[in-house]
């Protein structure tokens, strides 16, 4: 697979309207092939006919449950999957993720969020290089190459800076807390790395901001975290 949009998506849900909405949105976003199934039997048939690259599964299905279906299909092929369910209990979410699903999204959901999560799953599962570029004012960052171009100069981003920038770009326009950034870089045991985070952000600013001492895009929200401002 060259590109995430080449992925074949299998969408299983018992609500025809929801199938129509989500498959429509997926096609609109650029996914070429979206198979839909309204139940377990249909899903099995679809799976046998055309092996999908990613599955989006509902849990309450008329002829079975999504958890069992997931286990059954996973035995045949290791295909990434995302649960999309109205069941919001922690127990269900943890059970689904515990089975090995890549993500769990509860209804009602923002289709935009579903698309972003699906992209993430595909990129991770098939190790696709990110073609994504992030525009920060006059600076262009190519995430795939970890390169920031500013005023004709190209600076290489370190792995930490790239992770930070990716996290901030994923939440562009929104505050990302110190804790969330530290966790993205250092994992769960991040306590005590807050000062190191400041240092990495300063280095990142030197590469993407015109005036690193007076940042216009990568701004500090005092006491909370950082925000990558949206492009005007």
């Amino acid at each position: 697979m060259q590109d995430i949009f080449a992925a074949r998506v299998l969408l299983v849900d018992d609500q025809p309207e929801l199938l129509a909405l989500v498959s429509g949105r997926l096609r609109q976003a650029g996914y070429g092939t979206v198979d839909t199934a309204a139940g377990c039997a249909e899903a099995r048939a679809c799976f046998a006919a055309h092996r999908p690259d990613v599955m989006i599964l509902d849990i309450n299905l008329p002829d079975g449950d999504g958890f069992s279906l997931f286990r059954e299909l996973r035995r045949q092929a290791d295909i990434p999957a995302l649960f999309l369910s109205a069941r919001d209990a922690d127990a269900d979410r943890l059970f689904g993720l515990g089975l090995g699903a890549d993500d769990y999204l509860t209804k009602p959901f923002l289709t935009q969020e579903l698309l972003l999560r699906l992209q993430g799953i595909l990129r991770r599962a098939y190790r696709l290089p990110s073609q994504r570029t992030v525009q920060i004012g006059p600076c262009t960052v190519r995430l795939g190459d970890a390169a920031a171009e500013l005023a004709g100069r190209t600076a290489a981003l370190t792995a930490t800076e790239l992770t930070l920038l990716q996290k901030l770009a994923d939440n562009r326009g929104h505050i990302v807390t110190f804790d969330a950034l530290c966790q993205a870089v250092w994992g769960d045991g991040y306590y005590g790395y807050e000062n190191a985070l400041g240092v990495h952000i300063r280095h990142l600013r030197e590469k993407v901001e015109v005036e690193p001492s007076r940042p216009r895009y990568l701004v500090t929200v005092r006491g909370l975290g950082y925000r990558l401002e949206v492009q005007p």
């Binding site: 309207e17 929801l18 949105r25 919001d88 209990a89 509860t106 209804k107 289709t111 935009q112």
Partner: peptide
């Protein structure tokens, strides 16, 4: 209550989805 809230979620998902569109 859990059943009702479960059943409300799917139509809500459609409302949110179409409005988003």
């Amino acid at each position: 209550v859990a059943g009702v809230s479960h059943d409300i979620r799917t139509p809500l998902a459609l409302i949110v989805g179409y409005a988003e569109r």
